[in-house]
């Protein structure tokens, strides 16, 4: 029994440094994802049809194909055009473009969820387009989109494990190496990996539950 526990500690000790890599990928991609989501989400409701069309093509392109295919394409196929990314940036880019496309739908949906009458009221107060968006629409849409973006970040965390397949040393990759060098570790390695991912996800899960609860309560205070 004690043997067993020591095995777990040994593996944990070896896994943890890679945990930082996973978190680094998660945070970098999350920031980029939300940036892209906002740009594309606003683009989808732009007054200019050319911008609407371009952002729609981007969203459908990335939602219509697989994340792993996109990652491989960026890492292995793009160099054919002389564009080379490190495994880290290829991973981050694929994750952000993919989850950014999904998150942009959350942004777009929540903007469209704001009643038209709010826009009319701000027109009646003679606000500019930008003021309407900044002062009236976005602050309200933001509250609606938070749970969706939170869920998106949990999906993103799960997605980070794919970078192991383009040889980036994240948790999953390190787990595979440990398992490969010591096959008797197989069961504990994967159990620990799942638990570690769950622990990273836990704050996000709790956050999303709170946001969902407060969103369903409606708008009373900001």
């Amino acid at each position: 029994m004690w043997d067993n526990i020591n095995v777990y500690f040994d593996i944990l000790h070896k896994l943890l440094p890679a945990g930082w890599m996973t978190i680094k990928i998660l945070v970098t991609s999350a920031l980029l994802t939300y940036l892209i989501a906002f740009i594309a989400g606003l683009g989808r409701v732009s007054q200019f049809s050319i911008i609407r069309t371009l952002t729609m093509i981007y969203v459908e392109l990335f939602r219509g194909t697989s994340l792993l295919v996109q990652m491989f394409w960026i890492f292995f196929a793009l160099p054919a055009f002389g564009v080379e990314f490190s495994a880290f940036w290829a991973g981050v880019l694929a994750l952000s473009l993919n989850y950014g496309a999904y998150a942009s739908e959350v942004v777009r949906g929540s903007i469209l969820a704001i009643p038209k009458t709010q826009t009319e009221a701000s027109i009646a107060l003679n606000m500019t387009r930008w003021q309407r968006l900044k002062l009236v629409i976005l602050p309200q849409a933001f509250r609606i989109m938070l749970p969706g973006l939170g869920n998106n970040s949990i999906e993103l965390l799960k997605g980070t494990s794919l970078v192991s397949l383009i040889t980036l040393g994240d948790l999953t990759y390190r787990g595979l190496i440990i398992q490969n060098t010591n096959l008797s570790y197989t069961v504990p390695v994967f159990i620990l990996l799942l638990i570690l991912y769950f622990i990273i996800a836990l704050p996000l899960i709790i956050l999303v539950r709170r946001l969902e609860a407060s969103a369903s309560k409606g708008v009373a205070k900001v």
């Binding site: 709010q118 009221a121 701000s122 107060l125 003679n126 003021q131 002062l135 309200q140 708008v219």
Partner: peptide, 24 residues
């Protein structure tokens, strides 16, 4: 003034009446 009031639900009453004065 609208039939359904159309106040901004995310702003206090004061801000509802102040916002456009300041920004517009």
């Amino acid at each position: 003034v609208f039939q359904q009031f159309n106040l901004f639900p995310h702003m206090t009453i004061l801000r509802n009446v102040t916002e456009a004065q300041v920004h517009v």
